[in-house]
Design a binder for these strands. Structure first.
Lengths: 304, 304
DNA sequence: TCTAATTACGGCGTTCGTAAGAATG
DNA sequence: CATTCTTACGAACGCCGTAATTAGA
């Protein structure tokens, strides 16, 4: 009992004769005869009545016919789904992203993704880096975009465009009017930081260390769990913080926050595209990754 | 792409390794490898990621998996339907029967049919003999039970138990008290007959001719289209009629109708089981025919 | 007697297993 | 180094076609 025989069976049933069914299926009568005999012996019941001028379905044959059609219909569905999937005509894609990339990076890329592959239905799952990576490893998301690079043996990390962290203060802050400050001045001011070990925290520490300063000396007023919480606090006039440039663009434009350059200090943090090592990306995931990479070169071009 | 490969694919997907999938499917690893490679080349996309300690579905593989399961589910349905059908566990049967057999013969057989084959779902289509035979020839019904035997080359007729036609009159009829009447007396009375050429009409004519009388001399008060119409008329006291003994049993028992024996005249009419020549009967139809035949011998035993 | 399905048989392609090789952890 | 998948190659099986046979109209 195989799919070819099903198609043959249906060709015969619809044409009413073994010979015409054979023609349709590009086979000879004799082969057709063998196949039907084989089917009949397998279900142990006659499927066609041989009438002398063709063949006609028996009651059992009618039953078989209906179900054979269902089987072939399912098969056709499978084929078309696979073709759509391969061709990116229609594909579900599940991506994980931590806070900053999920809020500020990926949304900017959605138009380009939709333009290139209108069939991709994207689901974006959020969470902190650790949770996102867990979801990646479990297969719940196919790729992840995060702002840190833990040492995971099972994952491949691809750098995306670097995120610039800038010092921002609120409209009532005493630094408000400064054209710039020195790195040393940072140690005199109450700072708001993200969680210990978070991507932005690590980036700041590494930048300070890079110019010979010890991050441990910073006056950390608070460590807050969200970018937005820090913004709120600063907007009220309390403290200063290093925030992702892209995440404060809007507020800076409205004058709610002000960027204060710090002479000789550049705090950068990379975003990483993470995939499971030696796992095949679906075409949709590959397309998404390509869009991410493309945006990266664009950003870099702007930098140079 | 064939059904065997689908089963194999699912075995691998569920067990998480080519080797274990091979065991389940009673194949060797290498064969399995070839089959999956063949599937993958056919849909033109990777279905499994080979992880070094097994194999895991890719996104495309998950999609394939779902649909492959649907295909196999349909196949399983087909197999079970065919098995049920062959085994009479569950089968639809469509039978045609003309008026008398449909009303009085077949209903009596239903309990026996249900006892032998509880799974058979019977559909009984009615109509006059001609309509029933048309439905038989078109394949709409698989077998037919009728009260006449037209000369159709494409049909096989099998005689069932003969039906006895008896002369019945109403409670107000002048023959009410007669113990019996002579055949000649029939010609003095208004008779109600069925349609010209109907089974019961033919039976009466043939019986009269058989004892040397000419049916043309009968006083035909009316020809009515239904047995029940004739009963109604007679019960009102008008006329007499030859009706199927089995169809008047109930009324005779209640005293609404009376059977008057006619000396030396026996009007019999055969019922026929009709099938299309050289067509295979479904198991259900064969079972139904068997019940009919069994009832026939029973009746004959009573006769002798 | 013609048309259509079945049967017999030989060629050929596919599937399968053994065994050796490569990759992964 | 062990496990797992891949590749190569020969054997077996099944599928297909030709041609002769049988059945039906």
């Amino acid at each position: 009992m195989n799919l070819r025989q099903f198609e043959l069976f249906i060709a015969i049933a619809e044409s009413g004769s073994f010979s015409r069914g054979a023609e349709k299926s590009l086979l000879t009568q004799s082969t057709v005869s063998q196949h039907i005999a084989s089917l009949e012996s397998e279900v142990n019941i006659r499927l066609f009545d041989r009438t002398g001028r063709g063949a006609e379905l028996t009651a059992a044959g009618h039953l078989f016919f209906e179900h054979a059609r269902s089987v072939l219909a399912e098969l056709a569905t499978l084929r078309s789904c696979m073709a759509n999937f391969s061709g990116l005509k229609e594909a579900a894609l599940c991506v994980g992203a931590s806070n900053i990339p999920g809020t500020y990076l990926i949304p900017r890329l959605l138009p380009e993704l939709a333009r290139r592959h209108p069939g991709i239905r994207l689901t974006l799952l959020g969470g902190d880096s650790r949770a996102i990576l867990d979801r990646l490893i479990s297969g719940e998301v196919e790729l992840a975009v995060i702002g840190s690079h833990p040492d995971l043996p099972d994952c491949d990390f691809t750098p995306l465009d670097p995120d610039l962290l800038v010092l921002v203060v609120g409209p009532l802050h005493r630094w408000r009017e400064e054209v710039s400050i020195s790195p040393q001045q940072l140690f005199e001011e109450a700072l708001l930081l993200r969680e210990n070990g978070s991507g932005s925290d690590l980036a700041l520490c590494s930048a300070l260390t890079g110019i010979g300063l010890n991050p441990a000396g910073l006056r950390v007023a608070a460590r807050l769990g969200s970018n937005e919480a820090i913004k709120e606090s600063i907007a009220d006039g309390f403290g200063a913080a290093f925030l992702s440039e892209s995440s404060v663009k809007r507020e800076v434009a409205r004058g709610e926050l002000t960027i204060i350059p710090v002479t000789g200090l550049q705090v950068r943090r990379h975003f990483w595209l993470v995939t499971r090592r030696s796992r095949t990306l679906s075409p949709a995931a590959a397309a998404f990754a390509a869009v991410l990479q493309a945006s990266k070169s664009e950003e870099n071009q702007k930098c140079f």
